[in-house]
């Protein structure tokens, strides 16, 4: 376990650093398809991630959370997409880097894990070799040394019998084991930022608990900053330091997790929390759903997108665009926020 010591030193330094590791400034992603209206998937998003911090991006499908992460990683196809704004990683704007510079950083300084581990792994290469390849490429290790570290990594992410599993192909592993292998690949080079895009959505709840615990432990141990992208507020509640709630491509509320869940201020956040069935509540208690669907949204340019579905909506909500404003340590984009605690 020689890895642990080196991790510990970075993590100590990381915890006390106040400089943001990642600053996303006015990030805007527009999809332009031939013969179709341009579609703004991410509409001016700002947030910071400090070293060692776990930041959540929460929202439903189509809110732009995954597109945001792909834009940060420079993984959006150039054709048909326009990415604007700044993504400052340690002061360097990642959006301005050349493709080859970006490739050098990906896997080494920033890494990402995806929802579907099977399609993110190369099906014809044993997982051990896939971990080793990253080390060879970014750390210049020899195959032999890389395989030793790969074995350690598989062990670290809790894959039983790592010596044998090194030679396994992805299709021979279960979904949970594949996700562990993917985490091993992502963390092999000790990146400073890990982006996890719905890492447990495809997994069963008992396996999800394993993976979330693993992520939590690894992040704590290594001091890696984590951006957790999910639709599941339960996942966020147990994992994230700070939570950004996204709706229709914009951040509508940002707060530390305790205040956010104790007293959600944005009607959307509040509506989400109200509409989730709770374990302790049984039959007969009606849920309070958010009416409509994202298809009912208004354009942000002239209104609050959420207004048609919002129980707090005023006239002004349909006529003006609300701005993201600071309000007692939280950022809020709303003309008529929820006043009282749930």
């Amino acid at each position: 376990m020689s890895q642990t010591t080196s991790y510990a030193s970075t993590s100590d330094a990381a915890r006390h650093g106040d400089e943001p590791l990642l600053q996303v400034r006015d990030l805007k992603v527009t999809f332009k398809r031939q013969g179709e209206e341009p579609f703004v998937a991410v509409d001016g998003i700002d947030f910071d991630v400090r070293p060692g911090q776990t930041v959540g991006l929460v929202g439903e499908s189509g809110c732009g959370k995954s597109v945001t992460s792909l834009a940060i990683m420079g993984l959006l196809p150039k054709r048909g997409n326009r990415v604007e704004g700044e993504v400052l990683f340690n002061g360097t704007d990642l959006l301005k880097l050349s493709d080859s510079d970006m490739r050098d950083r990906r896997g080494q300084e920033l890494a990402m894990i995806f929802q579907d581990p099977l399609s993110s792994l190369n099906p014809v290469v044993p997982v051990g070799l896939q971990v080793a390849e990253v080390l060879e490429r970014h750390k210049g290790m020899s195959r032999k040394a890389a395989m030793v570290v790969a074995r350690e990594m598989l062990d670290k992410v809790g894959i039983p019998d790592p010596d044998r599993r090194l030679k396994d192909y992805p299709h021979q592993m279960s979904g949970g084991m594949r996700q562990r292998a993917l985490i091993a690949i992502a963390l092999a080079c000790e990146p400073r930022l890990l982006i996890a895009d719905e890492p447990t959505t495809a997994l069963d709840v008992t396996i999800q608990a394993q993976i979330l615990t693993l992520l939590k432990d690894l992040v704590r141990e290594t001091g890696t900053a984590l951006i957790m992208i999910t639709h599941d507020l339960g996942v966020v509640a147990g994992l994230c330091d700070e939570v950004n709630v996204l709706y229709a491509g914009r951040i509508v509320e940002r707060a530390e997790r305790h205040p956010l869940f104790e007293q959600p201020r944005h009607p959307y956040t509040n509506g989400l929390l109200e509409s989730i069935p709770k374990l302790e509540v049984g039959r007969g208690e009606r849920l309070n759903p958010i009416p409509g669907s994202v298809a009912d949204n208004l354009p942000w340019t002239s209104a609050c997108a959420f207004a048609p579905r919002c129980l707090n909506a005023l006239e002004v909500c349909r006529e003006q665009t609300p701005q993201l404003e600071m309000d007692f340590g939280r950022a809020l984009r709303c003309f008529n926020p929820v006043e009282v605690a749930r």
Partner: peptide, 9 residues
């Protein structure tokens, strides 16, 4: 009523 119906538009 300002809000859409439950099922949406």
């Amino acid at each position: 009523v300002m809000t859409v119906a439950d099922a949406g538009r």
